[in-house]
Write a protein that binds this DNA or RNA. Structure first.
Lengths: 135, 135
DNA sequence: AAATAATGTGAGAAAATCTAACATATTGTT
DNA sequence: AACAATATGTTAGATTTTCTCACATTATTT
């Protein structure tokens, strides 16, 4: 499901929330952006907006920092991590595709058609849909 | 999993994000609070903080509004909805409990022990954990 | 026509975030 | 030991967002 990744990359959190969730200071978070470790989106008014992926990344950075790794090291590690996780995603995709029986495929197709267009405009969001928004 | 409900009720969204997600104006959202349809949390600085549940509720309200139902009606509908969904949750819980084999129970217990305390302090959050945070 | 309900709009205050600059503590280098 | 670089703290002033409150407007009910 590519929707999952879309949802996880939606920029919705302001820096205050991120500070609480990650226990990093605003200064630290901004510095990591300066160092190109993260690239949060911006509102019209230039405020940072973070996604779940950004937050995961910050938690990862924090872990590495606790291990005494410096910015350069972390930058490299995140690169590698990014690459390998992309590969793993692809693998998982292949695997799950192979494992689908024809019947399941037909069922999924029906589902797909039934819900087509659901994520086009947020106007189409309706009750209960927020549960679909994350993960 | 009661954690799911805990996560869904975590107040993290500011009104700006909620406006975008729901396509309601700030005025509307505040009015619905005044009408006791929602009860968002507050920051120290008195700003509203909404949870996923709040947002679902607002989307539900919007649906009802589109159907021409007034505040009183919506209030009542939300009450009923709340009650029935609680019942359904209980039912689901019963069902899933019955369906768990002894072996699965033991496995879950091990898991539980392994991850005990994880949600006590946000300090214990580590990389990849944000994916667990929603749904 | 008057009252009520739901929402819009504007003002002024308070809070959160922004950038930029300088300070400080720790680590690495010479 | 002295110096340089790294990572973070702190402060200031500007900008943006949100707050409450009051009044305006529009559509429905009585």
């Amino acid at each position: 499901m590519a929707n999952k990744e879309i949802r996880r990359s939606m920029p919705v959190f302001q820096i205050g929330a991120v500070m609480e969730l990650t226990e990093l200071t605003a200064r630290q978070i901004r510095y990591y952006e300066e160092q190109k470790l993260i690239s949060p989106a911006r509102t019209e008014g230039n405020r940072r907006l973070f996604s779940l992926n950004d937050i995961d990344r910050l938690l990862e950075i924090k872990d590495y920092l606790d291990q005494g790794i410096n910015m350069a090291g972390i930058r490299k590690l995140l690169e590698v991590n990014q690459a390998t996780s992309a590969i793993e995603e692809d693998k998982a995709k292949d695997k799950s595709q192979k494992e689908l029986s024809d019947e399941e495929l037909r069922r999924l197709l029906r589902e797909e058609l039934l819900h087509a267009g659901r994520f086009q405009k947020s106007a189409s969001l309706r009750q209960g849909d927020m549960s679909r928004f994350f993960h």
